[in-house]
Amino acid sequence: MPKYQATLLIELKEGILDPQGRAVEGVLKDLGHPVDSVRVGKVLEIVFPAETLLEAEEKARAMGRLLANPVMEVFTLEALKELP
C-alpha cells in the first residue's frame, strides 16, 4: 500500500491567550525584532498507509480531529504527499 505523509498544524483558537507566544514575543522584541505578535502551535508529521490520496486525506483529517482539542484548538491539514 502506498505511504503518505500528512503535516498537521495544531494551533490555539483565536482569542485564547497564549502565554508561550507572549514570552517568545517578548524575547524577540528584546533582541531588536519589531514583532506585533507571536502564537506558538504544534506541527505533527504523520506517515501512514492509504490506497489513494482521497483516502489519505480522510485518514489525516480523522487523526487531526482525534489529536486536537476542539475546546481550545483548531487543526489544519497543511500538506499531504505520497512518499516515494
Binding site: I16, L17, P19, Q20, A23, N69, V71, M72
Partner: peptide
C-alpha cells in the same frame, strides 16, 4: 477528565508559565 470530555472546558498553561 476534560480531555476525555467527561467534564467541560480545558486546562491551559498557567498565565505566568
Amino acid at each position: 477528565l476534560t480531555e476525555a470530555g467527561i467534564l467541560p472546558g480545558a486546562l491551559l498553561a498557567n498565565l505566568n508559565l
